[in-house]
Measured scan of single mutants.
Amino acid sequence: MTYKLISNGKTLKGETTTEAVDAATAEKVFKQYANDNGVDGEWTYDDATKTFTVTE
C-alpha cells in the first residue's frame, strides 16, 4: 500500500510517499525520514487516507 507523509516542519515542508506492508512499517520509514531531515514534532495518522502528518 502507498502511505503519505505531510511534513509541516520549521525547515522542511512538503509531502512524500512510501510503499509499505502496513502503517507501522510506513511510520518507521517516515520517522527515520523526518529524523534525517531534522524534523521533530507531533505526529498524527489518518487511516482513511493512509496519511501521516508531522507538525513542528
Rank of each mutant, 00 (worst) to 15 (best):
M1G: 12
M1S: 14
M1Q: 14
M1T: 14
T2A: 06
Y3A: 03
Y3W: 05
Y3R: 03
K4R: 12
K4H: 13
K4D: 03
L5C: 06
L5F: 08
L5S: 02
I6E: 05
I6K: 07
I6G: 02
I6Q: 06
S7R: 05
S7K: 04
S7A: 14
S7D: 04
N8W: 13
G9E: 04
G9V: 14
G9R: 05
G9K: 05
K10C: 15
K10H: 12
K10E: 09
K10V: 12
T11N: 12
T11Y: 13
L12S: 09
L12R: 07
K13Y: 11
K13R: 13
K13A: 10
K13P: 12
G14Y: 13
G14D: 09
G14M: 14
G14F: 15
G14T: 14
E15Q: 10
E15F: 13
E15M: 14
E15Y: 13
E15T: 12
E15A: 08
E15C: 15
T16D: 04
T16K: 11
T17G: 03
T17C: 12
T18E: 03
T18Y: 11
T18W: 07
E19V: 15
E19N: 13
E19C: 15
A20W: 02
A20Q: 07
A20H: 02
A20I: 02
V21K: 13
V21D: 10
V21P: 15
V21F: 11
V21Q: 11
V21H: 13
D22Y: 02
D22Q: 02
D22M: 02
D22E: 04
D22I: 02
D22A: 03
A23C: 13
A23L: 07
A24Y: 09
T25K: 06
T25S: 12
T25Q: 11
T25E: 14
T25Y: 07
A26I: 02
A26V: 02
A26W: 00
A26D: 00
E27P: 00
E27Y: 15
E27A: 09
K28R: 13
K28Y: 08
K28A: 11
V29L: 12
V29T: 10
V29Y: 15
F30Q: 00
F30R: 01
F30K: 00
K31I: 06
Q32N: 07
Q32L: 07
Q32C: 06
Y33T: 04
Y33D: 01
A34Y: 06
A34F: 05
A34Q: 02
A34E: 02
A34M: 11
N35R: 15
N35H: 15
D36P: 01
D36K: 09
D36E: 13
N37P: 01
N37G: 04
G38P: 01
V39S: 03
V39Q: 05
V39I: 15
V39R: 02
V39D: 02
D40L: 13
D40Q: 14
D40V: 14
D40T: 14
D40N: 13
G41W: 05
G41S: 02
G41D: 01
G41L: 04
E42F: 13
E42D: 12
E42H: 12
E42V: 14
E42Q: 10
W43K: 01
T44C: 10
T44Y: 10
T44R: 08
T44S: 13
T44G: 06
T44W: 08
T44Q: 09
Y45L: 01
Y45C: 00
Y45Q: 00
D46C: 08
D47N: 07
D47G: 07
D47E: 14
K50F: 09
K50A: 05
K50D: 02
T51V: 06
T51F: 02
T51Y: 02
T51I: 06
F52H: 01
F52T: 00
T53L: 06
T53D: 01
T53S: 07
T53P: 01
V54Q: 01
V54Y: 04
T55H: 09
T55S: 09
E56H: 07
E56V: 11
E56K: 06
E56T: 09
E56I: 12
